[in-house]
Amino acid sequence: MRPFIYTPTSTVSAATQKLKANPHAKYLAGGTNLLDLMKEDVEKPTELVDITRLVLTEVKAITTGVNKGGITIGALGKNTDTANHPLIRQNFPLLTQSILAGASAQIRNMASNGGNLNQRTRCPYFYETSMPCNKREPGSGCGALEGINRMHAIFGWSQACVAVHPSDMCVALAALDAVVKVQGADGKERSIPFTDYHRLPGDTPQKDNTLNPGELITSIEIPINNFANTSYYLKVRDRASYAFALISVAAGVELEGTRIKQAKIALGGVAHKPWRALEAEKFLIGKEATEANFKQAAELEMKSAKPLEHNEFKIELGKRAITRALMQAMTGGKA
């Protein structure tokens, strides 16, 4: 690993000032992604600003403003604590399930909520420094485009990059219409709607998200919803646990009688960002919550998918996964 200076910090302003002073510095949270990539010589910060002792760990109910009844989650809270917080288990079980579907107990004990958003792709060409990769080395080419791309995108990819965002938690946050709160060295706060937080690769796959250089994620807000009892996170993977998603689905169905008032569906493992299934959502408004309707919604969503050489299977898998996740959601996953 390359040498770096280790700088512990205890306030948000001190942390952001450090990153302003050194553009090659990075924030260190749980380290589960950053240290791994530093060992591989993919990330090369000259300084690590340790933010783990910032007091941004709280989960609390929002009692005023537009998001009243919702919840705010500190960026430095651990994934385990977030998943197990009583308010989250009760009102946002979709978030609990998505977090617990990811990584392992050890990693979730280390991983922070902010770090989970900013984790980088698991594309093997991104990790292998002897291979071309536009995300790691802009302009070098994309090893996966014509390479082994079984794990890669079927939506929204470009010639420059076909990678997927690996997070499970983020898929649920996309379905939950969360908002990311960030702060820069000037002390100003910004709110970014979750679906605008991560980006599609376009010509600049080196940029995973819309965070400005040096900005720190301080918290994530989630508005209240009416589908806590009718939601489900389904993850399909190569082994039963401790593996990244081939496809995952976060589904929430709000009912009015037997009809669907609105559905929120996001997909993981299919794009450079958590993919909101807007076509399927639109179709389901006002429909009966039946398997046939769910199937049709899934068909519609998958129409615009563009597979690569090795991942055509994701289209049929996606259809079935969406249908199954919606069916499971109707019983709160208890079927």
């Binding site: 380290g31 589960t32 791994d36 340790d50």
Partner: peptide
């Protein structure tokens, strides 16, 4: 593995299980 993929390095820090291969000692 030294990359968080096997669990052989699991230890308890403040009573919680973590991977010592992805924990910076300084932290």
């Amino acid at each position: 593995c030294d990359h968080g993929q096997c669990g052989a390095c699991t230890v308890l820090v403040d009573g919680k299980r973590v991977l010592s291969c992805l924990t910076l000692a300084a932290s």
